[in-house]
């Protein structure tokens, strides 16, 4: 099948006119970002990777999970009804789509978090193989590539003419193409553009990293301070990361009523592990950074079959001190 570039606008119309949400890359303040759009005119298809990951459409940065009010008799609690709209994520990159199984793993692990799963049940993910990239892309180093279909329902390849060759990956993808068949055409004789393959970083061995991290004695290795001392403890890496998923529960209330919110949290914040006693087991910044690295390359692969890092490189691009995760991966790969 072929999706002509001119037909994308029509697809947006069809999806949004039936109450669906259409998320696609757009330009905002000199950046390309995933955003829910009202018209196909807004879409920007000349991009490497949006600044945000699309996780915010499944796991919003802030959301009300309950309301409460006080009266003479006690406290009234109100549950939130979660009925998300059908949502299309268009123009996702293969690294981002690969993060979906990782998110699902953590939100369905010992408890089914319906705030996540109900949204996930309603999304259709349409990814586009990357024809451009930059120095910070490293998907090939963590076993992925622009050809990866993992997590996608429909996978697109751009043609020389700027149209897209359509491949349905899942049943949901097939259903989607059927429902909106008027915008898809039969494939003619087309040539697809070459994909951008990030160079695999030779010095990195993910299995070896996992082995080194699993050894208890390495937890206190002086290497951590050496590699991560410059971390300044902001949450830019975790908030733009497609697999970071930590959240905090906060109450925001007036005198007699309020709401309970689920907000993104970051293991890089100094209060993340602060105990009520005043003790903080991660008392310096490099220990907090160690946690993020352990989470991606040790806890995740040991606990789940999905990956903790998809190699999108956002944490490298946004880091105010250019703490490059691949340099740490390289440093640890050298260790025995």
């Amino acid at each position: 099948m072929i999706l002509r570039r001119d037909n994308i606008k029509r697809l947006v119309e069809l999806v949004t006119s039936t109450g669906g949400v259409f998320v696609a890359p757009v330009v905002d303040t000199r950046q390309v970002v995933y955003r829910a759009i009202g018209s196909g005119e807004e879409i920007e298809l000349n991009y490497i990777l949006p600044r945000n990951s699309f996780k915010e459409f499944l796991f919003p940065q802030t959301e009300v999970i309950a309301r409460f009010s006080m009266n003479k008799g006690g406290v009234d609690l109100e549950n939130m009804d979660i009925t998300p709209p059908d949502t299309v994520i268009f123009g996702a990159r293969p690294c981002d789509t690969a993060s979906l199984p990782s998110m699902r793993a953590v939100f369905t692990w010992d408890y089914i978090d319906e705030f996540y799963t109900r949204r996930e049940e309603r999304i259709t993910v349409i990814s586009i193989g990357c024809t451009q990239g930059d120095d910070d892309c490293f998907c090939t180093t963590v076993g992925l590539s622009p050809e990866s279909r993992k997590g996608a329902d429909i996978y697109l390849l751009e043609t020389e003419q700027g149209d897209f060759v359509v491949e349905s990956v899942t049943d949901r993808g097939r259903d989607f193409i059927q429902r909106y068949e008027e915008v898809f055409e039969q494939r003619g004789d087309v040539k697809t553009k070459a994909l951008f393959m990030p160079e695999r970083i030779d010095g990195i061995d993910v299995e070896r990293i996992k082995g080194w991290l699993s050894k208890k004695e390495n937890y206190q290795s002086p290497l951590w301070a050496e590699l991560a001392r410059k971390c300044i403890g902001c949450g830019a890496c975790t908030f733009t990361c497609p697999t970071c998923h930590c959240f905090d529960i906060m109450d925001e209330a007036g005198l007699l009523e309020g709401e309970r919110r689920k907000n993104w949290d970051s293991c890089q914040f100094d209060f993340f592990t602060l105990h009520a006693s005043g003790h903080n087991p991660r008392d310096t910044q490099f220990k907090r950074w160690r946690n993020r690295f352990m989470c991606k390359f040790n806890f995740y692969p040991n606990k789940f079959s999905s990956r903790g890092c998809v190699g999108c490189g956002r944490c490298i691009r946004v880091c105010p001190v250019r703490l490059d995760i691949t340099e740490v991966m390289e440093g640890i790969s050298k260790e025995q």
């Binding site: 940065q61 403890g233 902001c234 914040f269 209060f271």
Partner: peptide
């Protein structure tokens, strides 16, 4: 502009004059 803020606190963390051990937002 503020509507885009993601509360990552990179502005605070990169600032040498934001040295409070307990920021008011914490």
């Amino acid at each position: 502009h503020f509507s885009r803020c993601i509360k990552c606190y990179a502005c605070r963390q990169v600032c040498s004059l934001c040295y409070c051990e307990r920021c008011i937002t914490d």
